[in-house]
Design a binder for these strands. Structure first.
Length: 927
RNA sequence: AGGCGCGUAGCUCAGUUGGUUAGAGCGCUACCUUGACAUGGUAGAGGUCACCAGUUCAAAUCUGGUCGUGCCUACCA
């Protein structure tokens, strides 16, 4: 083995081998265990959030596979309608053409080409992470079979009346020319203005105060051209007399009514609201209530249409706004311009301001679907982890709106609906089928709906469509409901809720038993990672490493807003002045686990990745040590208990305890605690102590061959077991080392990933051994402490005396002297009987036992004095706290006996130690 | 405006049903290349657990409030 761990060399090869051998497919006849992957965008790239979630799903899958379950991690990708279409459109634009120019069929062919070309990127990245996905069952939302399910679901829901076509206001993206759902709109606070316009009262009416006009306020002045009323509150005495009268709408040559509606807030502005039913969701509602005219003044590009007065027709909405303001001012009707903060709705893809826009769209009536979906979580069939996310789910589900599922795109599942000349709607799987079903004449022309379905519509069917429902139910029957869904809280509404609704509706089953909601990975400053912020990290770059220049190039390429380039470059140079070192997949994965606690934000800390790369190196070198000491040596399997040293028994006990901790925390999805337990065990127990304790035994084999052989066996078998414990989290290094270690134990098997996961066996816990090793550690640390604090060269052998100990201390010294000698470089260690007088020395305590290093020639009495004083001081403060507690009668009376006893013995130990140290201090002072 | 979360060592975070002298990693200081590992070893410094009340024999932990901070939902034109 190489002297240092070099992940790049071994990871690639194992990815390929595992997959080629078919290890990722479910095997055996154990309990089925299934996770479906949240399908990433087929033409996308992996980001840190993916990396994090893949790491978790892979750990779960590998863990269950090793537990003997039939583990299936179902893989697949999503067609990502808008995102993918946008990319291809941009390519066409760059080539000087456009979607409309090439036409629908050719465009869709181009998208498929792009999918073929780029679709492999993300799946290659997934493989690099070591994800044990069953690639033989890879699915794509636009596959024939999945598309058939989409179609069936649409038709069935339509036939049941749960899908309908409606003409209402939607969120319209004027750049992408499509409707989007409420969830795809992000509203951010921005600075704007509130314009106050005077609307003259018609027919000589006046307000209560005698004004001939009323003042309305608006943040979108151009919409006044579509006003069809002015509303006031019915109780508002200022305007009560005006209700039923009219205003002359400026610039429009139109009279519009003044209506009363309690939607109006009397306190805000003047208490008069202009009502534009075609361009505002609230106004639309009011329009419905009062039967107002709906005047659409925009085209689908958000330019003013023929319903606007001629001077404005053809203007862009923002140009129209400027002109309206100028014209109103010219008429002397501009009362005031007030700075105003408002929430501006923007499309999450395009970033442009969304317009409420009246169009025909398809909707799912979700009310009846929502009820059972709520119940499934209420009654515990589906559990969220952490549980508090259930509140978020309930809050949304109980106030759910019908789902707009049509998108004015070309890339996606085309809506299976046809229209005749008279606008009749026919829904079915094909034109031919519809003609037959409805007995339509050949001469009747039918035209298919131009639109496609929201990508989330097909994603909602993902658990059952990927498993073969409804025709090929072998996998569906075995693996559905799936065991757990691993996803981020940002898509609880988009995806999780919709999956629950659709799956219950169509299969009668829940889609998954648990939903593990992960935190969101943020950058080192806690900022959300996004392309426009330029703080995106590609997990592959942390694995392989990347130079600063390449990273800048990557982050600034293909930006939607090129003006941000400079900022992104600077930010990148500040964050990674020397680029990023490659840390390997195992280190990256372990970082993710260590950060996977219950919080909702995960600040990614590269320092931890480096730490875990070092951990890998530690594992690597511990294995080197084991192999170097085992090669060409006789290994006695299952040695007789009598030949096991206390260290052997101890490490066997510790690995057992670790197994228990891992198991317990895996059940609760506490990957942070799992990784902590494994790290702690392997580094601080196996490497720091057990390996060191094994040295004196192995290096002195002649004097006790049976014991050396026993230790060698324990050394190897605990390493082997540790590798199995580690494997779900660090698949590559564990496999690489296991391949070399397993043969020493005559373990047959081609891969660690198919080996059994260690399970807890209480009989291996040995508390006597643990106590004795604690003694050894305690004494060793005491001696090292004196060395360190007294600045004694590690190279200098020293003499140690033990004094005032109890019987156990004496027998421990007798039994474990060789360990002490090896670990602390002793010249001699001697037991002083109670009658013997110790020399002047530096002192440490282990319980009652005094560990003494004589001053002679080594130690500065002043330094020891300072050290003792510090120690005494610490004890005194501790003792005061304990005594105070014990002198409190209420404490004695109320606290459980165990707690009181513990405090009592603590007091005894502390005061014993205190007086011992005080005595030592006096001794030193008297020198 | 409502809802949720967070505030523990310089940094990133643990702390399970209230009972430890409050922990880990990184960073920092000193010493050390000794036969697995300098991607290392040994020792050490560093926290009045945001603040204020309350419950309790006992609060980082429970309750209320304050301040700070982040997110989500709904929005006033």
């Amino acid at each position: 083995m190489d002297k240092t761990y070099q992940p790049q060399q071994l990871e690639d090869q194992w990815c390929k081998t595992w997959e080629a051998q078919g290890y990722f497919a479910p095997q055996g006849d154990g309990l089925p265990y299934c996770i479906v992957i949240p399908p990433p965008n087929v033409t996308g790239r992996l980001h840190m959030g993916h990396g994090f979630q893949q790491a978790i799903m892979d750990a779960l899958t590998r863990y269950h596979r090793m537990l003997g379950h039939q583990a299936l991690w179902q893989v697949g990708t999503d067609h990502a309608g808008i995102a993918t279409q946008m990319v291809v459109e941009r390519q066409l634009n760059a080539a000087g053409t456009s979607r409309l120019e090439v036409g629908r069929d050719a465009f869709i062919r181009k998208v498929w080409d792009w999918k073929e070309e780029s679709g492999g990127i993300i799946t290659r990245q997934l493989r690099r992470l070591g994800s044990s996905l069953d690639w033989s069952r890879e699915r794509f939302t636009m596959d024939e079979q999945l598309s058939a399910v989409v179609e069936k679901v649409f038709i069935d829901l339509y036939d049941e009346g749960l899908i309908y076509r409606g003409n209402r206001l939607v969120n319209w993206d004027p750049q992408l020319h499509t409707a989007i759902s409420d969830l795809e709109v992000v509203s951010e606070e921005e600075n704007g203005s509130l314009w106050h316009f005077r609307y003259p009262l018609a027919d000589g009416a006046t307000t209560a105060e005698g004004d001939t006009y009323i003042i309305i306020a608006t943040t979108r002045p151009e919409t006044m051209l579509g006003d069809s009323a002015v509303a006031v509150h019915p109780d508002d005495t200022r305007y009560r007399n005006l209700v039923g009268k009219f205003v002359d709408l400026p610039l429009c040559d139109r009279k519009i009514p003044i209506i009363a509606d309690d939607y109006v807030d009397q306190e805000f502005g003047t208490g008069c609201v202009k009502i534009t039913p075609a361009h505002d969701f609230n106004d639309y509602e009011i329009g419905q209530r009062h039967d107002l005219e709906i005047i659409n003044i925009l085209t689908e590009n958000a330019k003013l249409n023929e319903n606007a007065p001629p001077p404005y027709q053809g203007l862009d909405r923002f140009d129209a706004r400027e002109k309206v303001i100028v014209d109103i001012e010219a008429l002397g009707l501009l009362a005031e311009i007030e700075p105003h903060k408002l929430k501006v709705p923007r499309g999450d893809r395009s970033g442009v301001i969304i317009e409420p826009y009246l169009t025909h769209q398809w909707y799912v009536a979700v009310q009846s679907l929502a009820e059972p979906a709520i119940e499934a979580v209420e009654n515990g069939d589906i559990k969220f982890v952490p549980k508090n996310w259930e509140n978020t789910y309930f809050a949304w589900m109980r106030n759910i709106q019908d789902w707009c599922i049509s998108r004015q795109l070309w890339w996606g599942h085309r809506i299976p609906a046809w229209y005749d000349d008279e606008g009749n709607i026919y829904v079915g799987s094909s034109e031919a089928e519809i003609r037959e079903k409805h007995q339509l004449e050949e001469s009747l022309a039918l035209v298919q709906d131009e639109d496609v379905l929201d990508t989330w519509f097909s994603s909602a069917l993902w658990t059952f469509s990927t498993l073969g429902w409804p025709d090929d139910t072998e996998y569906f029957d075995r693996f559905h409901p799936t065991d757990v869904l691993v996803t981020g809280f940002d898509i609880i509404f988009f995806w999780v809720a919709r999956m629950i609704m659709m799956t219950l509706k169509f299969t009668g089953e829940i889609p998954f038993k648990e939903v593990y909601i992960t935190g969101l990975v943020r950058d080192e400053h806690g900022q959300k990672m996004s392309k426009s912020k330029g703080n995106i990290l590609d997990p592959i770059d942390l694995i392989d490493g990347i130079s600063l220049e390449e990273l800048i190039e990557k982050r600034t390429a293909d930006m939607m807003q090129p003006q941000l380039k400079e900022k992104v470059e600077k930010h990148t140079r500040d964050s990674f002045p020397t680029g990023i070192t490659g840390y390997g997949t195992d280190a990256l994965r372990f970082t993710f686990y260590s950060l996977a606690s219950t919080g909702r934000d995960i600040k990614f800390d590269l320092g931890r990745t480096e730490g875990y790369r070092n951990f890998c190196n530690k594992i690597w070198n511990a294995a080197r040590y084991v192999l170097m000491n085992s090669e060409e040596k006789h290994i006695e399997f299952n040695p007789d208990n009598q030949h096991l040293s206390v260290a052997d028994k101890w490490i066997l006990s510790r690995v057992e305890q670790t197994t228990k901790t891992v198991q317990h925390n895996m059940e609760n999805y506490r990957f942070d605690l799992v990784s902590q337990a494994l790290h702690e065990f392997f580094w601080n127990e196996y490497c720091d102590w057990y390996v060191e304790l094994s040295k004196p035994v192995l290096w002195d084999e002649e004097s006790n061959p049976a014991q050396a052989q026993a230790s060698r066996f324990v050394l190897i078998s605990v390493l082997e077991k540790s590798l199995r414990l580690l494997h779900p989290f660090m698949p590559f290094i564990s496999e690489e080392i296991w391949q070399r270690v397993a043969p020493l134990l005559d373990i047959t098997g081609d891969s660690i990933m198919l080996q059994p996961y260690p399970t807890y066996a209480e009989e291996n816990i040995d508390s006597d051994a643990e106590m004795d090793i604690d003694w050894i550690k305690g004494v060793v640390i005491a001696i090292r402490n004196i060395r360190g604090e007294m600045d004694i060269s590690p190279a200098k052998p020293i003499d140690v005396f033990l004094h005032k100990g109890i019987d156990n201390d004496k027998s421990c010294l007798d039994n474990y002297q060789q360990y002490l000698r090896k670990l602390t470089k002793l010249n001699s260690i001697q037991w002083l009987e109670s009658g013997q007088t110790p020399p002047a020395a530096a002192t440490q305590l282990y319980g009652k036992l005094e560990i003494l290093v004589p001053l002679a020639g080594l130690i500065d009495a002043e330094a020891e004095k300072t050290r003792l004083e510090k120690e005494i001081n610490k004890l005194e403060t501790g003792l005061i706290a304990v005594s105070k507690k014990l002198s409190n009668q209420k404490f004695i009376a109320n606290a459980p006996d165990a707690v009181v006893d513990k405090e009592r013995s603590k007091e005894k130990d502390m005061s014993g130690a205190l007086s011992a140290l005080q005595e030592k201090l006096m001794q030193i002072q008297s020198l």
